[in-house]
Nucleic acid binder design. Structure first.
Length: 855
RNA sequence: GCCGAUGUGGCGAAAUGGCAGACGCAACGGACUUAAAAUCCGUUGGGCUUUAAACGGCCCGUGCCGGUUCGAGUCCGGCCAUCGGCACCA
């Protein structure tokens, strides 16, 4: 008949069968407060995956790594009596669908629908226990209506520094609320990517290239929507404290936000009534400031440059403006700059110091101006040496180090006000001195920039904003928010999705749509891809609510518990460390401050799964031809083997290479589980093994069983899935009958199947049913172990002499230290080794070892 | 340069300061088979040594150097390497 090898166990039949049953019974649907048979006494557990962008390529093996981990937790927690929220959805706005639309003319909504269908069927084939009734899609008007609604909340809010909180814009008493809105329009130099025809956020630019596609990015001033995330810088750092996140991710965020403490100091400009404010972390080096530098784009430059210096300054500014970010960093080694002809007065000693412009000073950081202290700053030193500017030491290093170029803490010198003080004290004293004279003040600065929130693309959420035309000057038109009743703002149909290339958004082509009324037109930009993922975890709590972005009772229930975060466990890749994870925290805090949420943070515990490499140990890529397709693996070994292998490979968070041989090993383990319970009869049909009996487990069997319950339980709790599987392998190896007369206690097998269920749900469900067990395995209670079965009568004790293992000894569990000591010393090998020596000390570790120290 | 992670057999890995290498892969040997596959059993860190053979015995071994300790893969100090992030941030 068929030449195809018979499968060691019929996963190809049982897997689709159980997937269908779970679907029909809606086995994994989580109930919300208010729903019939909702049990308010059950504690909740919210376990979430980073939802995928449904690309045309389908799932790769990296996706199911995290998804399997969370699925194991979800199934385990259900068996432990939790009401588990374990949802899945689609982050479907974004560039690839739009790029495809440009090429094919097919509407992105169609591509998205097809890709979602593919992803969904692939996920179902792996047997994940998602509550599919809660499926969401960021491109669904019923979803992005609320993304737009949240934008309106942000637009209509401001950050009150007095309360350190977001407040409705109505509480702002200043003249122009547009100056403080959390969403505002600004004409700023932005990252413009000509290839993609759009601007990008700082976070989306890597080494001067776009994160998507790797195209060059240039600086260009444009009028754009910004979100005032910088107002939250302090809270975004401080509130990381209460979160259970990997230290690496926390420090990545702290680093990105980049808090530094120092002072702002005002320098008068000679012969002008203007002054230059600088930010420095080392006000104690003020006496060492021998020149100043302004960023080339600094607004004061126009006012202070002397006539003879103008040509050089103009030429330098033009050259800098043309440089892309990439060029600016690549040329970083070589300092460039031009003298403005103007001088500033050092407030500490009234000295006249020259003012330069140079591109190593960035407009975007601090005040865009610095006091240059070449003796104690590497960059200033390099610049001073190149342009022959004076270098004055003001910090004495503690050792005999060269003071020139010393950037650490030492003792202040050549600084009358603070001479002799250690740097830290000197900083404090000079800061007070400046404050008393109103020459400066203590200040904190952040690297974090406001979030550039608009994109010149088609496939994104339109802004719920219109522009009034009453103003004659287009530059001064006024923006207004639409009323929430007008949401969702649906993008217009377009024939041509191509970016215009000029920076004008493609939505401009839809003339009818753009025209909002006789007096107003619509905002043409769309939101960036991150918008939808900033709050999707909230929508999962109540995904079909059309009155509110999330119902109050639902939000309160799924956010309950006494930690600061809403989601209990969040698993995904590190690539979102500073993008999604920072943006989502920001939005969450805005909504929290406004009273819509019960917790200040979105994600309590974060775990990053490691990257899966190809069999060759290299990153998987098309060009290397080392991509593993999950569909192929499932076809050959089944979903359970696929799941178990992904977990058995090694620790979840570690990077690790794929191995088809490894999959086979895990597959063999599952086949052994099957054959433990099933045997093949003469006709080649599977039937219940006759070894299974309703008998009590033997002492040895009970010991292995309870050790397995203990280990698997503890390992799931600590996400050590690889060692949990090892222990289940040990269980199977111990229970395989070695002779025809051995029996298998059915009760022990049932318990084992429950332990296996989160890992291999199909196989365990099927064998559970075959054993004619009561109910569905997914509804069972997680077993607990009994210490009494783990206890032994006798233990092996290791005998060491001077720390080296020399022999082993069986002792009764109740043996006293004296007995053990005596037994060890009379041991013939020990006696031989310590002959002629003095026993100095005997260390006894109960039930483990005895160490005899002899000399 | 700064921050973070990692370094253990041929490979993936395991080990509350207490027998390094559990579990799996690969390899080798064997059983079953006409044969192969599948399955099952056994061996498997390196070196030296006893012996007819076997059992056994000894030494070395967790990136490198040092320290703490009766005892270190694990703790401390200093290096090296790899990976990831940030990087003219004043």
């Amino acid at each position: 008949m068929s030449s195809e090898r018979r499968k060691p166990y019929p996963f190809d039949q049982i897997e689709p069968k159980w997937q269908k049953i779970w679907d029909e019974r809606q086995s994994f649907h989580a109930l919300n407060p208010g729903e019939e048979s909702f049990d308010s006494k059950k504690p909740k557990f919210y376990v979430l995956d980073m939802f995928p962008y449904p690309s045309g390529a389908g799932l790769h093996v990296g996706h199911p790594e995290g998804y399997t981990a969370t699925d194991i937790i979800a199934r385990y927690k259900r068996m432990r009596g939790f009401n588990v929220l374990h949802p899945m959805g689609w982050d479907a706005f974004g560039l690839p669908a739009e790029q495809y639309a440009i090429k094919s003319g097919q509407h992105p909504a169609i591509t998205t629908r097809e890709n979602v269908a593919k992803f969904k069927s692939q996920l179902k084939r792996i047997g994940f226990s998602y509550d599919w009734q809660r499926e969401i899609n960021t491109t669904d008007p019923g979803y992005y209506k609320w993304t737009q609604w949240i934008f309106l909340k942000i637009y209509n809010s401001w950050f009150n520094p007095k309360t350190n909180k977001t407040e409705p814009i109505s509480t702002y008493l200043g003249k122009n609320p547009d100056e403080v809105r959390l969403a505002y329009v600004a004409d700023v130099p932005v990252n413009w990517c000509p290839e993609l025809g759009t601007v990008l956020a700082n976070e989306e630019v890597i080494d001067g290239k776009s994160e998507v596609g790797g195209f060059p990015v240039v600086r260009r001033p444009m009028r754009q929507w910004m979100l005032r995330i910088t107002a939250f810088a302090e809270r975004l750092i401080d509130e990381l404290e209460g979160l259970d996140w990997p230290e690496g991710i926390k420090s990545l965020q702290r680093n990105w936000i980049g808090r530094s403490e120092g002072a702002e100091i005002d320098f008068k400009i000679d012969n002008h009534d203007a002054q230059i404010r600088v930010f420095t972390t080392r006000p104690d080096t003020l006496y060492g400031a021998t020149y100043m530098v302004l960023a080339p784009e600094h607004s004061l430059v126009d006012r202070i440059v002397t006539e003879e210096q103008w040509p050089a300054v103009r030429e330098y500014r033009e050259r800098t403006a043309r440089k892309s970010d990439l060029e600016r960093t690549e040329l970083a080694k070589d300092k460039t700059g031009v003298f403005t002809g103007a001088y500033a007065i050092n407030p500490a000693n009234e000295e006249k110091i020259p003012i330069w412009i140079a591109d190593y000073v960035l407009l975007g950081y601090g005040t865009g101006a610095i006091q240059a202290v070449p003796a104690h700053d590497e960059r200033d030193l390099e610049f001073a040496r190149k342009f022959d500017l004076p270098i004055r030491q003001v910090v004495q290093p503690p050792g005999d180090e060269d003071p020139t170029g010393f950037v650490g803490d030492g003792i202040a010198i050549n600084s009358p006000i603070i001479d002799g003080l250690p740097s830290r004290d000197a900083i404090r004293k000079i800061a007070s001195w400046l404050e008393e004279r109103e020459l400066g003040k203590r200040a904190i600065n952040y690297k974090l920039r406001d979030w550039l929130f608009s994109r010149q693309r088609y496939w994104g959420e339109p802004f719920p904003i219109i522009w009034e035309e009453s103003q004659p000057n287009a530059q001064h038109r006024k923006h207004n928010a639409l009323d929430e009743k007008e949401l969702p703002v649906v993008p217009p149909p377009l024939e041509d999705y191509k970016p215009t290339g000029t920076g004008e958004p493609p939505l401009a082509k839809a003339k009818d749509w753009v025209r909002y009324s006789d007096k107003a037109t619509r905002e043409l930009n769309v939101m960036p891809q991150w918008a939808g993922s900033c709050w999707y975890y909230l929508r999962f709590c109540d995904p079909r609510n059309d009155k509110r972005f999330v119902g109050e009772a639902a939000e309160q229930y799924w956010a309950s518990g006494d930690c600061p975060g809403t989601v209990d466990l969040y698993v995904g890749g590190t690539e979102h460390a500073v993008l999604h994870l920072l943006y989502a925290r920001f939005w969450h805090k805005v909504l929290f401050d406004l009273g819509y949420l019960s917790k200040p943070e979105p994600f309590q515990r974060l775990v990053n799964q490691g990257i899966i490499l190809g069999e060759d140990g290299q990153k998987m890529s098309k060009s290397r031809g080392n991509i593993v397709n999950p569909d192929d693996v499932i076809e050959q070994y089944g979903a359970d083997a696929f799941r178990c292998y992904e977990m058995f490979m090694g620790p979840l968070e570690q990077m690790k290479p794929w191995s088809m041989r490894g999959v086979e090993g895990v597959f063999r383990f599952l086949a052994r589980v099957w054959r433990l319970i099933m045997t093949e009869n003469q006709a080649g049909e599977w039937q219940l093994s006759s070894a299974l009996q309703d008998v009590d487990p033997t002492k040895a069997q009970n010991k292995v069983l309870h050790a397995t319950i203990k280990k698997v339980t503890e390992d799931i709790e600590s996400l050590s899935f690889n060692t949990a599987i090892s222990q289940m392998m040990i269980f199977v190896n111990a229970f395989i009958p070695r002779s025809g007369t051995e029996t298998l206690p059915t009760s022990a097998m049932r318990t084992f199947l429950i332990l296996l269920n989160p890992f291999a749900p199909h196989l365990s469900s099927d064998l559970w049913a075959t054993l004619k067990s009561e109910g569905d395995i997914t509804g069972q209670t997680w077993p607990s172990y009994d210490e009494k079965f783990l206890a032994e009568d006798e233990v092996e004790i290791v005998i060491q002499v001077n720390g080296k293992v020399r022999d082993r000894l069986m002792t009764s569990i109740s043996a006293t230290e004296e007995e053990i000591k005596a037994a060890a010393q009379t041991n013939p090998k020990v006696a031989e080794l310590i002959a002629g020596k003095t026993v100095r000390k005997v260390i006894i570790v109960p039930k483990k070892l005895v160490n005899i120290v002899a000399q």
